[in-house]
Design a protein around this nucleic acid. Structure first.
Lengths: 180, 180
DNA sequence: GATGCCATGTAAAGAGTTACATGATTCA
DNA sequence: TGAATCATGTAACTCTTTACATGGCATC
């Protein structure tokens, strides 16, 4: 069960709300971890019960009040001891590739369409990473150092997105375009 | 719920036992779908109840008897109609990258060690894909055609594994080696 | 007027993991 | 003698998704 440790790691870098974490899951670390908002809120509640995180409730004008979470010393200990353990193997579910796998049952036009669609999504992700990268590169040295390893994980994400784009192009060259 | 469709797609290419499917999940399509043997057997039972797959029980000398599953016409219809629907987004869980993300709490030696270990695993996966690729490339034309799209998904897997290896090297160059 | 963003959650159902259970053969 | 491969499954538990629920502000 390492979603708890994923949250601890994210909050260890920067404190934040559940909503905040959710967007980080969707954007910056989307290529290696996914989680829904429901799950994030639930895990935060359970982490708080265990004493690994704590929060301040902040009221806001014109917006619902929010809970800003941070890691407690006990939470940091837990994270550190988790870091000493061997990692669990990766788990992935990529429905799009099941589609390609069984793509003989689709028309060439449909296959092409799906690949184009998927490629556009990866392009978007890569663009988002590139924006984040620019933000990181323009930080003052001290801040930049803090994000060094998170940035490293994003560099892998960028390489993977690039692999997807290359693959998509090769696939589209490979599948003849049908004419009426 | 697309593990059912993943199984249908795999059985549609080649019939096989639960054990068989499990090894395919671990080897050829491991980089985009993972499943445990328990889950595979459970799903096969439920697919059989729904009438989407059927099997012959084959007794073997000196080995437990096995059930060879294949897709039924109803199962193929289900697969085809699933293919028409938009795919669900990918889901990934990569505990190793959480470790890197929070890697400031590890020594440089430990970080390097983890990266080396992880890189070795990706090297192994890439080698397994390369072997499979050789097998595919030496098939007679007719058979080769059948595996065209499954092979395409593996090509993406190879690109992704290569991205991991490149990244690992860059990381190791980036993290100074400590001396006693 | 509709969509999207910010911000939080609960309840029920479905998916997936961990532990348990068995057993012969082959290879090092 | 021990580990790996082939081969199947059940039971309990945990994790994750889907559907439901609310509501103001900003942008198009």
């Amino acid at each position: 069960m390492s979603i708890k440790h994923a949250i601890l790691a994210l909050l260890d870098i920067d404190q934040g709300t559940g909503y905040d974490l959710m967007t980080r899951f969707n954007n910056s670390i989307g290529s290696f971890w996914s989680a829904s908002h429901q799950q994030v809120y639930k895990e935060l509640a359970s982490l708080a019960t265990e004493g690994w995180v704590e929060f301040d409730e902040v009221e806001q004008a014109g917006k619902p009040s929010k809970k800003i979470y941070r890691v407690t010393p006990a939470g940091l200990d837990e994270l550190k001891s988790w870091l000493q353990k061997p990692v669990k193997p990766l788990k992935v579910k990529y429905p799009f590739l099941i589609k390609i796998f069984a793509g003989d049952h689709l028309s060439k036009a449909q296959l092409r369409q799906d690949i184009i669609q998927n490629s556009a999504e990866h392009r978007e992700t890569l663009d988002a990473y590139t924006k984040l990268e620019q933000w990181i590169l323009h930080l003052p040295e001290k801040e930049k150092k803090k994000y060094h390893l998170p940035y490293a994980t994003m560099k892998l994400g960028m390489k993977v997105e690039q692999a997807w784009l290359e693959w998509s192009e090769e696939m589209l060259n490979d599948i003849p375009q049908e004419r009426e």
